[in-house]
């Protein structure tokens, strides 16, 4: 990218990815069927809402690569890309509608869900015996943890919107996109 990056936005993207990684380790609720609810999506949403889609996407991308470097779980070449950098990068799309943040959050979460579903289906069709439908399994399994995670992240962002963190985000210094 020939455009010069704003140092402050760059550092915020990095810090948000680090925050997401830490919040991802704090399990706040264990779902009955195994998945867990964490707040890892919240910092990525905050960055996307403060600095726009590109910043959110990069933050998610970095979180994905960090997870890949720190605790990889690779079972398929395509799964590696679709489980690590892509779904978190998709969350960055939450910054798409600066005036309708809630709509953005739903779009971001939905895109993450779609990528996980594709990834699950690809994995499942590679390992499951023929004749089993990979889509049903993948749709259900991924919904079981992304839906509660998305709801809790959206509720929290809704509450944070009332705080200076997101309220005055746009006019705090050189906070331009990228």
């Amino acid at each position: 990218m020939q455009k010069k990056w704003d140092t402050r936005v760059m550092v915020e993207i990095a810090v948000a990815a680090a925050l997401a990684l830490i919040l991802g380790m704090l399990r706040i609720y264990r779902m009955p069927y195994g998945g867990s609810v964490t707040l890892e999506m919240v910092p990525l949403f905050v960055v996307a809402l403060r600095h726009g889609v590109a910043a959110g996407i990069w933050s998610g991308f970095i979180l994905g690569i960090l997870n890949l470097f720190l605790d990889p779980y690779i079972i398929h070449p395509v799964q590696m890309i679709m489980d690590y950098p892509l779904p978190f990068a998709a969350l960055g799309l939450a910054g798409m509608f600066p005036n309708k943040p809630m709509l953005g959050l739903v779009v971001g979460t939905t895109c993450r869900y779609i990528i996980h579903v594709l990834s699950g289906a690809i994995f499942f069709s590679a390992y499951a015996p023929e004749g089993m439908n990979p889509w049903i399994y993948s749709l259900g399994y991924n919904a079981s943890y992304i839906v509660p995670n998305g709801i809790i992240a959206i509720v929290i962002i809704g509450l944070l919107l009332q705080t200076p963190l997101l309220k005055g985000g746009k006019d705090r210094g050189a906070a331009k996109d990228e």
Partner: peptide, 20 residues
């Protein structure tokens, strides 16, 4: 592909994890 910026952000993130 912003190779340098990406690496810089990842390095900062890694450095911040223990602090945060």
């Amino acid at each position: 592909i912003p190779a340098h910026e990406l690496a810089m952000m990842m390095t900062i993130a890694l450095r911040f994890i223990p602090t945060l």
